[in-house]
Computed example of a mutant assay.
Amino acid sequence: MPSIINQKSVKIFLRLALSISFLSAVADRFGLWSKEVSVWGNWENFVAYTKLLNPLIPESLINPVAIIATAAEVIFAVFLLLGFKTELFARLSGCLLLLFALSMAFSTGIKGAFDYSVFTSAGAAFALSLMKDKHLEVDVYLDKNKFQF
């Protein structure tokens, strides 16, 4: 009897978990979560948190850094959901999450990075990047039709 926990189901779970986590964080920045569950609640609070995590970055560059991080999270989430270049975007997600974790650890202490499982998420993204079999991914269709990006 086949196990429900196999590489196919784990890969799909990792793609969904990482994507939804990114999109949830982005939604919070734009006030789409209720105040009871929100971390930032609005863009200004997120930018202030970005400044806290990046004390060496000049004030004039904080807003662009926040925009770039947010854009990366949206792009990575969408591509992981679709299964477009999954290994690449999983690796990039792992790098972004590891950067967040290290920024948290060095600016606010290691406890927050552990409590919010940012290192764990980075590890999950890197693990996903090593899974080569394709399951419910756009890349399967693109490979069959010889489209190259």
Rank of each mutant, 00 (worst) to 15 (best):
M1Q: 08
S3Q: 08
I4Q: 10
I5H: 09
I5V: 11
Q7K: 06
K8H: 08
K11C: 10
L14R: 04
L16K: 09
L18N: 11
F22A: 10
F22R: 10
L23D: 02
S24C: 05
V26F: 10
A27S: 14
D28E: 12
R29Y: 06
F30C: 13
L32C: 01
S34Q: 05
E36M: 01
V37D: 10
G41E: 13
G41N: 09
E44K: 01
N45F: 07
N45I: 01
F46Y: 15
V47D: 12
Y49C: 01
Y49I: 00
T50I: 01
L52F: 06
L53V: 01
L53T: 01
L56K: 15
E59G: 00
N63A: 08
I68P: 00
A69F: 01
T70F: 07
A71G: 03
A72M: 11
V74F: 14
F76A: 12
F76S: 05
A77M: 08
V78C: 13
L80G: 03
L81T: 03
L82S: 03
F84M: 05
K85Y: 10
T86P: 05
R91L: 14
G94E: 13
C95I: 15
L98I: 08
L99N: 15
L99F: 12
F100A: 09
L102Q: 06
M104Y: 02
A105G: 07
F106Y: 13
F106V: 06
F106C: 09
S107G: 10
G109R: 13
I110V: 06
I110C: 06
K111E: 14
A113F: 12
A113I: 10
A113Y: 13
A113V: 04
Y116T: 12
Y116Q: 12
V118C: 11
V118M: 12
V118G: 11
F119S: 07
F119D: 12
T120D: 08
T120M: 09
G123H: 05
A127F: 15
L130T: 14
M131Q: 12
D133F: 01
L136K: 11
V138C: 09
V140P: 00
V140Q: 07
Y141T: 04
K146Y: 14
Q148C: 15
F149D: 15
